[in-house]
């Protein structure tokens, strides 16, 4: 992609960049992810730490937290999803508009974690597609930031569930 510092005019004079529209749009998307924080338990507290001043998720363009699925494109599932919650999570995911991404934070959401019991869904990938899994119980804020950066790479490369789904339907992924 041509949109980086190397090609800028080092003398500070006005220059121009060349890139493909598709890459440019993905670049915009990855730097303005709007998360819907679906925090249910312990991981939700670490997600709050990540959003607060010390770790400051705003540095990655993802501070515009939206609690309405219609306004968000990144679902961060932070914490336990049990069988009573599972249909709720599914309908939240379905209400988000494409392209949409899912980060699965922590062991409970990824696999049920230490809760292999009657009430707990053993991994949210049973009901919705997941792009990035973050291990930990709970993951430290650095873990969430790392997961978000990996997701940014995937969005830039057009290699996410949402992209593949759109391509499979014969849709353009860039609007």
């Amino acid at each position: 992609m041509g949109l980086n510092g190397e090609q800028q005019n080092k003398t500070g004079q006005a220059g121009f960049l060349t890139t493909r529209l598709e890459k440019f749009i993905e670049w915009g998307r990855k730097n303005s992810l709007w998360p819907l924080p679906h925090g249910t338990s312990c991981c939700g507290i670490e997600m709050m730490s990540t959003l607060a001043a010390d770790y400051d998720l705003a540095r990655f363009g993802a501070e515009a937290v939206r609690f309405s699925p219609r306004q968000a494109d990144l679902l961060i599932v932070a914490g336990i999803i049990n069988l009573k919650m599972a249909p709720v999570l599914k309908s939240v995911y379905e209400q988000m508009s494409d392209p949409k991404w899912v980060i699965c934070m922590g062991a409970c959401a990824s696999s049920g974690g230490i809760f292999d019991v009657y009430s707990v869904l053993q991994g949210i990938d049973n009901i919705i597609p997941v792009d990035v899994y973050i291990p930990g119980c709970p993951p430290a804020p650095e873990g969430l930031i790392h997961g978000l950066m990996r997701l940014q790479d995937m969005v830039q490369a057009g290699d996410t569930h949402a992209h593949r789904r759109m391509r499979a339907l014969g849709m353009r992924t860039w609007g």
Binding site: T40, S41, G79, I80, K84, F115, V117, Y118, S119, V120
Partner: peptide, 11 residues
């Protein structure tokens, strides 16, 4: 409530 019930008492 009960949306985060993790059966700790059963465990």
């Amino acid at each position: 409530f009960g949306y985060t019930h993790r059966a700790k008492e059963k465990l």
